[in-house]
Design a protein around this nucleic acid. Structure first.
Lengths: 221, 221
DNA sequence: TTTCCAAGTAGAACAAGTTCTGATATGGGT
DNA sequence: ACCCATATCAGAACTTGTTCTACTTGGAAA
C-alpha cells in the first residue's frame, strides 16, 4: 500500500533534484580533469550500449562497469537513467550542430532549408535507430525531475532549427511557437516511426507538412 | 551482464505479444460477463490511482489488490503497465467522444472548430493533470509491444479530430498527415506542460499554431 | 607535511515491474 | 452429472533502477 506520505516523500526528493544537487559534480562543470574524463567515459559507454540494444540495453550496472566507475558514482554524475540518456542526446546534438555549422544550405526558402536539415537528421537516426529510440524515449518520458536537462535539449534543438531556417532576426520572436511545434512534430514523428506506428514515408510526410507552417504568417503571439 | 541472447529472448517475447496473445482474454472481447466486469474494475482502479498520484502511483500490485484480482490475472488482461495505461486512455477517449458527439460547434471555420475542441480537451486534462500525466507518459513511452493498442488510440483520436473539423469527405485523404501532425503536437504540448517545460499559455499557443495548418492547402500526399 | 572533507569504491539492500509455480475454480461440451 | 481446458488465485522469485552503508582516496587548506 502506497500511502500519501510516501508520495509526498517522493515529491520532496524530486524537488530537491530539480535545481542543483550540490553533491553532484555534474551540476557545476567538472573541477578536475579526471572528472571530465569520467563523465566522458560514462556518456560513451551509455551511447555504445544504447546503440547496440536500445533503451532496455542501457542498464545502469553495465554502464557503470563498462565505464569503470562505481554504481554510486554513476548516480552522482547522472541522478537517473533518464538524466543519463537525455545527456547522451544533448551530447549528440552538440556534435550534430558542429557538423552543420560550416555548411550553408543551398535552398533559398526557409521552409525548404528546414525540411532539408530535418531530413538529414532523420537519416542519421535511421542509421542508428536503437540509439535514437533510447534517447527519444528518455526525452519524452522525462518528468519534472529532469526539467532542466530537457530544457537544455530543447534550447539546443531550437538553436539548430533557427540556424537552419536562418530567419531574419526580427522574425524570430513571433516564431517561437512555430519552432516548438516543429520540434514536437520532429520528436513525435521519430518515436512513432521507431515504435512501428507509422511508416518512414508517413514520418517524412509529417515533417514536410509541419515545415509548411513557416509559410503561413507568424501569429501575433 | 546482458548477453545478446537475452536481448533476442526479449525480442521474441515482444514479437509474440505484438499480435494477439491467444492466452489473453482482452484480445478477443470478453467471453463471459464476469470477465467484462473484471476488466472494468481494473480500468477503474487504474484510473483512480492515476488520478490520485500520476504514473508512479499506478502500481501493479495495488491495481490488482484494489480491483480484487490476482496479480497474474491483471497481467493476463494487460501485459504491462504501459498497456494498462494506454487502455485507460482509450477508455477516456471513448467517453470524450460520446460527450462530444451530440453538440455541434458554432464556429464556421474548420481550424477554429478544431482549436475549440482541443482547448476543451485541454481543460479536461487541466482538471485532472495527474491522470493526464499517467496516460500521456504511457502513450509516449510505449514500444513496439504495445503497437496495436497505441494504434487504437491514434485511430480514435483521429476520428475525434475529423469529427470536430468536419472537413468535407473528399478532403480527408490528403489531410491525414496534417491530422497526424496536429495529434502529435497535441500530445507533445500536453506532456511538455505537464512536465513543466512550457507554460499553459505556450501550450495553448502551440495548439493554435498547429491548427493553422488547416488553412494551408493540403499537400499532394 | 598533516589534516580533513568531498569524491569515489564495493557491495548490500530496497522498490516496483514482471514472470513463474502449484493449487483451485469455472464453464462449456459430452 | 462429469470432464477438461482454461481462467484465476496466492504467493514466491526474478530483474533492474535506485538508495544506502561503511570504507578508502585524492587533493586543497592550514
Amino acid at each position: 500500500m502506497t500511502t500519501p506520505q510516501d508520495r509526498q516523500d517522493r515529491q520532496d526528493r524530486q524537488d530537491r533534484q530539480d535545481g542543483h544537487d550540490p553533491r553532484r559534480p555534474g551540476g557545476s562543470p567538472a573541477r578536475t580533469e579526471r572528472q571530465r574524463a569520467r563523465r566522458r567515459r560514462i556518456l560513451d559507454a551509455a551511447t555504445r550500449l544504447a546503440s547496440a540494444g536500445g533503451f532496455d540495453a542501457v542498464q545502469m550496472r553495465e554502464v557503470a562497469e563498462t565505464s569503470g566507475v562505481a554504481l554510486g558514482t554513476l548516480y552522482r554524475y547522472f541522478p537517473s537513467k533518464i538524466h543519463l540518456l537525455v545527456a547522451v542526446l544533448h551530447d549528440q546534438l552538440e556534435q550534430l550542430r558542429a557538423n552543420l555549422r560550416d555548411r550553408p544550405l543551398p535552398e533559398p526558402d526557409p521552409a525548404a532549408r528546414l525540411a532539408h536539415t530535418l531530413r538529414r537528421a532523420f537519416r542519421a537516426h535511421q542509421r542508428d535507430p536503437r540509439l535514437a529510440e533510447a534517447m527519444m524515449r528518455a526525452l519524452l518520458f522525462a518528468d519534472r525531475s529532469a526539467r532542466e536537462e530537457v530544457r537544455g535539449v530543447f534550447r539546443l534543438t531550437t538553436a539548430i532549427l533557427l540556424d537552419a531556417s536562418n530567419l531574419a532576426g526580427e522574425e524570430i520572436p513571433g516564431r517561437l511557437s512555430t519552432v516548438r511545434v516543429i520540434q514536437h512534430t520532429w520528436h513525435a514523428a521519430l518515436v512513432s516511426w521507431l515504435s512501428g506506428q507509422i511508416t518512414l514515408e508517413q514520418a517524412q510526410a509529417d515533417i514536410e507538412t509541419v515545415c509548411r507552417l513557416l509559410t503561413v504568417p507568424a501569429p501575433p503571439d
